[in-house]
């Protein structure tokens, strides 16, 4: 039993180290804050991106090695997404949030650890993204807004798939335009979303449309 176990772990360590031997490309993800004139102050922004697939015009696909990424913009406006380099890629596809399989798999570790603050403990499920801050336009207590979006069960599945076009072999970064987000939802009318439901669906769609790729000028 023990020997068998050792043998299996030897093989898996071998496979893991092999796949990590190929260098990963770090793609910068930049948070674009709302314009000063909109007087919206962001204190925290975190999101999960998952199931990243890169493909070329022949529909050849490559999966990113670790397929769940928790991006945290609390202390910096940039984060890095590690992808496997893929020649001639022209499409980047990923989910904003985590799918129902992960949501129903019980206690997970690493980036999916429920103690990362991205998990609803009273109603099982991950929080796909959190946007928190203040604005004088916000009528809630202390002018605070809190958007926690998630939900994996029909009909309130808040997962959105994002497709971004790439120019083959040109370096790029990803921007998340929160100015656009606050144009799409008006915080005069909506300032708190804390559970799955129609509002979570609405703000998830809004945030999904705020992702874009920008070619790096050299």
């Amino acid at each position: 039993m023990n020997v068998l176990f050792r043998f299996i772990s030897f093989i898996s360590i071998f496979i893991i180290s092999y796949s990590f031997a190929t260098p990963l490309a770090g793609v910068k993800v930049v948070l674009i804050r709302p314009h000063q004139a909109d007087s919206i102050n962001i204190d925290g922004f975190k999101c999960y991106l998952s199931n990243i697939v890169i493909s070329d015009s022949n529909k050849k696909k490559d999966l990113s090695p670790s397929n769940y990424h928790l991006l945290d913009f609390t202390s910096s406006d940039t984060a890095t997404l590690y992808l496997s380099p893929f020649a001639n890629a022209n499409l980047l596809e990923f989910n904003l949030g985590l799918d129902s399989v992960i949501n129903t798999s019980g206690a997970l570790g690493g980036q999916l650890d429920p103690s990362n603050g991205m998990y609803w403990t009273w109603q099982s499920g991950y929080i796909n993204f959190k946007i928190e801050g203040t604005s004088p336009h916000c009528l809630a207590r202390n002018h605070e807004f809190q958007f926690h979006a998630g939900g994996y069960a029909y009909p309130y599945n808040a997962l959105n798939t994002i497709n971004l076009e790439l120019i083959p072999n040109k370096a790029f970064h990803i921007e998340i335009d929160l100015a656009l987000f606050f144009k799409l939802i008006s915080i005069q009318n909506l300032n708190h979303v804390m559970s799955p439901g129609p509002n979570a669906i609405k703000i998830s769609k809004a945030l999904a449309s705020c992702f874009k790729t920008v070619i790096d000028e050299k």
Partner: peptide, 27 residues
């Protein structure tokens, strides 16, 4: 409300009227 036995304990641990704790502090 809870979809898996393994995440069940998180609910009473973090409920303010039950054990009122956070998982990171328990750790």
């Amino acid at each position: 409300a809870i979809n898996h036995l393994d995440v069940q304990a998180l609910a009473p641990i973090s409920h303010p009227d039950e054990m009122g704790e956070t998982m990171s502090n328990v750790l």
